[in-house]
Write a protein that binds this DNA or RNA. Structure first.
Lengths: 315, 315
DNA sequence: CGACATATGTAGAGAGGTTTTCAGATTTAG
DNA sequence: CTAAATCTGAAAACCTCTCTACATATGTCG
């Protein structure tokens, strides 16, 4: 049921009438384009009548020609999104592009640089710290980067208990230091224009024996001196400001590594959280009335191919 | 006349009405798949009526929607027959890279897709909204994306007064609606797993006459229906979660566009803020007293000299 | 050779898609 | 603020496509 149309057409157990065989041959001769027009067009090319085409696709198990075509279209989309194809479509970047697009291209370069700058091993160490810490996991960040800390906190809460996002570091937040000890982990996000309060906080936490995981730029925050693991990102771009996108990607990469590496003992925890959230209807999964009312054929099959929804999303 | 549809859609001399711009955006955001269904489907996704779609393709020089679609199909065929794609059959899919690095590469693809999905013009519109709004600028975001909202708020505060980051949308935050009116702008970050409270908030703000700038993914949050400008990013990656890195980059690209485009009337404001911050010693600069504003070339484009520290950084 | 079964085409009904028409809404110019 | 121009969507007309019903052809077996 899930195989590609091409496989269905060449399946051995298929009993084809002479006319149907001609249609299949046309279909395969320039696959899948010839199936993307109307049924009548295809019939004419095969030298048969359109009802014959309809009968064939029904014999193949589809509910009708539109359903068949939708499947074909979905396959085209899958191929169109292949990484190789994306490379081909990649434009030279920067030619006629405006400032915004040039900026995005520039971010792409920083992202590449980031990928090459940090060995895979470092991600593994970060994951180990995050998941195997027995005590609490505290997170701090600078004025801009604290948003990333919050995102990471959001993910971590799905994986383990004891996650504390310290948010903005106001003076009274330093009180939290009394609770931080040898069994705890402090995750610090500190990118250039290193904030003195963040550095001070991290130093004091380190003095109290806490382990430190640092996300910073390639010039390394002062925190790197006493951090156990440091992940650096390339953040400079063609702009008076720096970009945080590679930093975000790097944080997410840690999560991706965790997901790939662990056998996902945390899965049941995620599912529990999902259930709670569903009960509270915090997210609306299917936009009512927007993409819908899906046009349906008489068979009840949606006419347009679904556009590959992800099992889990962020917002 | 022989240019690709994508180029026609992004051609500079093209005068697009607001509704038409939304269609173009949808087309580009999932190119070329979204143009392969029916005109009605496309219209629905863009939140416009089908005649508007027809008018657009005629304005582009086609004889009608079927003609437009035929051209699109021809392009698909061309790409499908590309030599690169032929090699794909034997693609092992799993590189020698580890999970984290593969993830970063995947983010790179989404970033490229994002760059190509949104015309430069849209960034200009976003900048205009952000800078020329007379009233207040409010910002909201979802559970994860609110970090991006906070980052944007950080930038905006350097450019203009009246920036209000609404933070987490708790029930009492809805009280803020009474202050939102016709002269104000609401910036919404809403990525898939669209949050019902965010959507509801935006809808009510729109009802009160506020203009709306939306950052979302290519499947478009329901907010897109009544947003004045929508910027969509590609956020899906090879991971059970989505990535927000392209979303961050896109937000920053808006800032980059603003910096490049405007004559930077906001410069004095930035300098004032710099002075205040220096006085409070919030950041520890590696080089004290090196607070110069961004250097700019004769063309008015800001130019960052290599290897000099940024005049303004993110942390 | 004749009767039946299967295969195929023709024609038309019905559904869905596109385009035209027109009126309301919005923006722009004066 | 008013008037003109433009933009937009609702509705309907028109067209195209699909699929059903029926008729015809082709082959098969007694």
């Amino acid at each position: 049921m899930n195989s590609k149309v091409k496989d269905m057409l060449t399946a051995p157990g298929l009993a084809l009438t002479p006319s149907e065989a001609r249609i299949v041959q046309v279909l395969l001769s320039d696959y899948p384009m010839s199936g993307l027009g109307t049924a009548t067009t295809l019939a004419r090319r095969a030298g048969v009548s359109d009802p014959t085409v309809g009968r064939l696709v029904i014999k193949l198990g589809f509910d009708g020609y539109p359903a068949f075509q939708a499947r074909l279209l979905a396959e085209v989309e899958a191929r169109l999104h292949s990484p190789l194809l994306m490379m081909e479509a990649k434009r030279p970047a920067g030619d006629g592009d405006g400032a915004a697009q040039a900026y995005l291209a520039s971010v792409g370069h920083s992202l590449d640089a980031t990928r090459q700058a940090v060995p895979e091993q470092a991600y593994g160490q970060a994951v180990r710290l995050l998941l195997e810490t027995k005590g609490q996991v505290y997170l701090v960040g600078g004025r801009f980067s604290r948003g990333i800390a919050a995102m990471l906190a959001g993910y971590l809460q799905q994986f383990r208990p004891g996650v504390v996002d310290l948010g903005i570091l106001s003076a009274d937040r330093f009180d939290a230091l009394v609770d931080i000890g040898r069994r705890d982990l402090l995750v610090v996000f500190d990118y250039r224009r290193y904030q003195s309060d963040v550095v001070a906080f991290a130093r004091q936490a380190a003095d109290r024996g806490a382990r430190i995981l640092l996300f910073t730029d390639v010039w390394l925050s002062p925190v790197a001196e006493f951090a156990e693991v440091t992940l650096s990102a390339r953040i400079e771009v063609d702009s008076p400001y720096d970009t945080l996108a590679p930093a975000v990607a790097q944080m997410e990469a840690v999560i991706a590594h965790a997901v790939a590496e662990t056998d996902f003992a945390a899965r049941d925890r995620i599912e529990r959280i999902e259930q709670i959230r569903a009960a509270q209807k915090v997210t609306l999964d299917d936009e009512p009335g927007r993409n819908a009312p899906p046009r349906r054929g008489p068979d009840g099959v949606s006419r347009r191919p679904k556009l590959t929804p992800n099992p889990e999303g962020t917002s």
